[in-house]
Design a protein around this nucleic acid. Structure first.
Length: 288
DNA sequence: ACGAGGTCCTGCGAGC
DNA sequence: TGCTCGCAGGACCTCG
């Protein structure tokens, strides 16, 4: 489930391999990932476009070309990577840890774009909850403006978080995950940050006490930075662009641990679907 | 402005 | 072994 750290990992993996390259033939296997662009338009725009730069915004990878921007939103099972076109038959067998994640056949590739150096840019998405957009500059500016601030930007202070929380009566976890309020945070990191800060995920955002806001801010930023450094969290499908699992799953204290004991107080962790119909795991003793 | 619920998708694990 | 079933989930939508 790519959130900010996972998308950042994809982007770091491909940015240097794409910059300055020109896209050749592009192939799209499914139209249902497209939003606001037709297959014909996307493919004709892509073919011959030259990559200027690649960056992350929220949970999106943005590939800026001289003709417009390809915006990739990986949804929950999407991934983005560059690989050699022809697998070298002499290459050693994939190691156990890369075996299932970088299938040499590249199953589930939704979009493949040939690069001018002979490699391939691949968007892979088994469940296709991800989306692809093609935006011109005004389109991008409007899209970008609708997203909340980047939590890892220096401008994202505890005061900014405080204003975001004060503006909503919805559950604090839901607000953290609302991309219009704050960019890049999803189910995993919202839960982890709320646990570390000792805040009940279902608490209305505007009732989070003032003194808890800097704590939440500090933990949220720290967790996201640590997860980026660990190259993301691997649960089920996610792998880095080079096919390796991330490392942050070792740090998870609540996500996926329903029924296990709280690392802080030993209480059995509770799980609920009450917030946004999403699994939320928390410690009802440590989080108030 | 909020919660609730449906929709998109398909791999996977559980259960029979 | 082989089947069905329901869950997983980010973003977006409608409805009350």
């Amino acid at each position: 489930m790519p959130e900010l750290p996972e998308v950042e990992t994809f982007v770091r993996g491909i940015a240097g391999k794409l910059r300055g390259r020109t896209f050749g033939a592009a192939r799209l296997t499914h139209d249902d990932v497209l939003r606001g662009v037709t297959r014909r338009r996307l493919l004709t725009r892509l073919e011959g476009a030259r990559v200027i730069r690649v960056f992350r915004r929220a949970k999106h990878a943005v590939i800026v070309t001289d003709r417009g921007r390809l915006v990739v939103q990986p949804g929950m099972t999407g991934s983005l990577f560059v690989r050699s076109k022809v697998q070298d038959p002499r290459s050693k067998k994939p190691s156990a840890r890369t075996l299932d994640l970088a299938p040499r056949t590249c199953d589930y590739a939704v979009l493949r774009i040939a690069l001018s150096d002979g490699k391939l840019l691949i968007y892979r998405d088994p469940r296709r909850l991800g989306t692809l957009l093609w935006l011109d500059e005004p389109g991008w500016e409007a899209y970008d403006a609708a997203l909340g601030p980047e939590p890892l930007d220096p401008g994202f202070t505890a005061a900014v978080l405080g204003r975001i929380l004060a503006g909503s009566r919805a559950a604090v976890k839901k607000v953290l995950m609302d991309q219009r309020a704050l960019a890049g945070v999803g189910n995993i990191y919202a839960q982890e940050a709320l646990f570390e800060a000792g805040i009940d995920p279902s608490k209305p955002a505007n009732r989070v006490p003032g003194e808890a806001v800097p704590r939440l801010h500090r933990h949220l930023v720290r967790i996201l930075r640590t997860a980026v450094a660990s190259r993301g969290t691997t649960v089920r499908d996610y792998r880095t662009g080079s096919g390796e699992p991330g490392g942050f799953q070792l740090e998870l204290k609540v996500y996926g641990r329903e029924g296990e004991s709280c690392v802080r107080c030993g209480t059995s962790l509770a799980g609920t679907h009450a917030i946004d119909a999403r699994i939320t795991v928390f410690c009802h003793r440590c989080q108030r």
